[in-house]
Amino acid sequence: MRILYVIGKHITFPGAFLRAFWEQVTCLLLGLSVENTGYLRADEMCGHIEHVLPKKASAAYISATAPGVMSLIAGLPLTIFGIINLRVLGVAPADSVLLFVIYILVLYAGVSVMCCLHPQFEVAQNLWDITLEKLRSKDTKSKVGGIFMFLPALCTYIGAILERFSVPVIVWAVGITLIFVL
C-alpha cells in the first residue's frame, strides 16, 4: 500500500508539495514543533511533514483541516478553469499549442492539488480521537464542541484513509476522463 501511496503522491507532486507547505505554515502559526521538512519523500511522509500532534482540540482541528482548505482554495479554481477551457471552450493544439499546454498544466496542477487535500492518517486519527473524547465528555461545552467537530473530523478521517490508498488520484483520473469523453 505504501508503494501505491508514494506513486500517487509523486504523480500529483505539485499537490503534495503545496500540501506539505501549508502544513508547515500551519505548524508555524500554531507553534507546533516540526521534525522533518522534506516535502517530497519516498515514504509514507511524502506530501506531509513530521510534526508533533497537538492535544488541544482547536489546534488539532486547525492542523488537520487548514492545510486542506488552503489547498482547496488553490486547487478548485485551477481545476475548474482548466476544465472550462479544455472541455467547454474546446481549446485544442490547432488553436495554439502554447495555450493548450498552459491549460493542460493548469488542469494537472489543479487536479494534483485536489488529490492532496487530506492530512496524514495519524493527524486525522488524532483529531478523531479528540472529537470522540469530547463527545463522551460529561461537560456540556465539550459535548457541543464535539458535535460541531464531528462531521469535519469524520470527513478528514475517511479522506485520510482513502488518500493512503491513492483513491483520490484514481477517482479524479476517472472523473476527468469521463468529463472529456462524455
Binding site: 505539485p14 508539495f17 507547505f21 505554515v25 521538512t37 516535502y39 486547487g75 479554481p77 485551477l78 493548469v106
Partner: peptide, 22 residues
C-alpha cells in the same frame, strides 16, 4: 524550522493563480 523558499513561492503562486482562475 524554516519554510523552504520554494514552498513560499509555490504557496504564493498557487494563490495568485487561483485568484486569476476565479
Amino acid at each position: 524550522t524554516r519554510v523552504p523558499i520554494m514552498g513560499w513561492i509555490a504557496g504564493a503562486a498557487s494563490l495568485v493563480l487561483a485568484v486569476v482562475a476565479i
